[in-house]
Design a binder for these strands. Structure first.
Lengths: 235, 235
DNA sequence: TATTTTTGTGTAATTTTGAAAAAACCTATA
DNA sequence: TATAGGTTTTTTCAAAATTACACAAAAATA
C-alpha cells in the first residue's frame, strides 16, 4: 500500500488569504508587497506554505498571524487552485481562504505596515500569479455567503449603527438599498439587539448602537438569513 | 527564490469525487469498494492522485473517467481537506469535487460494476478516512447550489416530466413541495420548454415531457433561480 | 363502463415589500 | 435659549409576491 503512495509525485501546498476589511464606506483588501525589488508594483495575497504536521485551517491562521499579528480572525476556505503552471517557480497547489477583519482592530495591532496596504476593492493593483482570479472568486463567495449568513458583522466593530450596517451591505453587494426596508429586514432576523447608547459626533442626530445576538448567530446557522437578492439598483 | 521553495516539504495531492445520481425517487451516491481484502465493508469515494502536469479539474475528470468510463460529467470543486492525520498512510491533501451523473447513462456505459455500487444517500455504509465528512459537505453544497442554479437537471435525462423534476427537488432538499406552487415557480423561470410528447407507461395519464432551455441556462447565470427555502415540511 | 390513478390547473388569504410622510432627536447657529 | 437644518426612526398604506388549498380531466384497467 505504501508503495502506491511512494510512486506518486508530491507537490507543494500553499495557503493564501483574501483579507477583507471595511472602512465605513468601502470594502477593502489587505495586500502585501512582493518581496522582489525588480517588481515594485506587483502585490500579493498573504500566503505561506503548509507545514508537515499542520492542517490547512491551522496553516491559514498561522500565516495570517505571521503577516498581521491578528489571532482569532474569521477565516473560511474558498477553494484550491492548482493549474500546473500557476506558479512559474515550482508546481504548487494553493488553498485559498477569505478572511474578514475589523479594520480598526487591525490598524491598532499591526506591526509591519511598510510592506502591507489596504486597497479599495475596485482599485486593485496588479496581482501576483493567479491571485486576481482568487480575489474574484472570494468576492463572489462573500456575496453569496453574506446573504445567507450574518458574517458581514465580522467586518464591523462590536457595536454598530444601522446606517453603518447598511453601508457595509451596500459595499459588499455594490448596490444601494432602501433604508426603510433594509432596517426592517435586518431587525426582523432577530439577530440585532438595540442598545440605549447612541453614536456621537458622526451625524447630527446620532444613531443607536446595535450588537449581534451571538446566541442566535450560533444556533440559527439557518438558511436564509436575508434575501438581498433583489436590491434596488444593480450598479 | 527557488531555494525558498526547495526548503518546503511537499505532500501528496489527491482528488476525490462525490458522485450524485437520481433514480426517479431517491438521491444516491456512487461508491467504490476499497481494494483491501480485510476490509470488505468499507467503501470509498472515487479518487486518485494528481499528476505532475495536470490541473486539479483535469485530474478530477480523468479520475472519474478511469473509474466510470464517463466523460463530460458535471463536476464542481467543493473544498480541500488537509488534516495532517486524515490519511494514516501518508500526508495527503485531498481536493474534493461533486459530480452530477445521469444514473441511466451511467448504467449503460459502466464496465466494472463489481467494485462500484449506488447507495441511498441516507443509508450510506462506513466510509474511508474522512469521506463521510466530505459527503456531508457535498450535500450541503448541492442544496445551496440547486436553489440558486438549475444544476439539478444534470441528474435527469434530457427530457423529463414535471412530476419527475419535483421528485428530484424533493429528494435533494429532503422535503415535500406543493405541486401547484412548485410547477408555477419552475415554469416562471423560463428555463423549461414543454414538448408535445407525453411520458408513456409510467403513469395512467402520462405527463408532458419538458426540456431545459440551455440558452437561458447559459446566459442567465443569474442569481436566484428559485427560492425553495420555505418548503412545506422539513422532514 | 365504472373504477382507479395521476396529471393539470385557479383563486382567495396571507405575508412581504416598496414607498411616503411624519415624528423624534441632535447640532449648530443666531 | 430659541430656531433652523439635517438625520434617524416609527407609522402607515398600497402593491406585489407568496402561500394554502381542492377538484376536474385524462388515461389505464378491471
Amino acid at each position: 500500500m505504501l508503495n502506491l503512495y511512494k510512486q506518486q509525485t508530491a507537490c507543494l501546498v500553499a495557503v493564501d488569504s483574501i483579507i477583507f476589511g471595511f472602512d465605513g464606506e468601502n470594502l477593502k483588501l489587505l495586500l502585501v508587497k512582493r518581496g522582489l525589488e525588480d517588481d515594485t508594483n506587483t502585490w500579493s495575497l498573504m500566503g505561506g506554505w503548509l507545514k508537515p504536521d499542520e492542517g490547512l485551517n491551522d496553516a491559514a491562521h498561522r500565516v495570517l498571524f505571521e503577516h498581521t499579528g491578528l489571532r482569532d480572525v474569521y477565516l473560511e476556505q474558498i477553494a484550491a487552485f492548482g493549474n500546473p503552471d500557476r506558479d512559474p517557480v515550482m508546481r504548487t497547489v494553493s488553498v485559498i481562504y477569505k478572511a474578514l477583519v475589523n479594520i480598526e482592530e487591525y490598524n491598532e495591532k499591526i506591526s509591519n505596515k511598510l510592506t502591507t496596504s489596504w486597497f479599495l476593492i475596485n482599485e486593485l493593483p496588479t496581482l501576483l500569479f493567479d491571485h486576481s482570479e482568487m480575489v474574484a472568486l472570494a468576492i463572489e463567495r462573500l456575496r453569496s455567503n453574506a446573504s445567507l449568513h450574518p458574517i458581514g458583522f465580522e467586518l464591523l466593530p462590536e457595536k454598530f449603527t444601522l446606517p453603518q450596517l447598511q453601508k457595509l451591505y451596500e459595499a459588499i453587494f455594490n448596490t444601494e438599498f432602501d433604508k426603510r426596508n433594509f432596517t426592517r429586514k435586518l431587525l426582523a432576523t432577530g439577530f440585532l439587539v438595540k442598545t440605549t447608547e447612541k453614536q456621537k459626533g458622526f451625524s447630527k442626530k446620532g444613531a443607536y448602537y446595535y450588537y449581534l445576538n451571538k446566541e442566535k448567530y450560533n444556533n440559527d446557522h439557518a438558511f436564509n438569513f436575508l434575501s438581498l437578492t433583489n436590491p434596488d439598483k444593480i450598479l
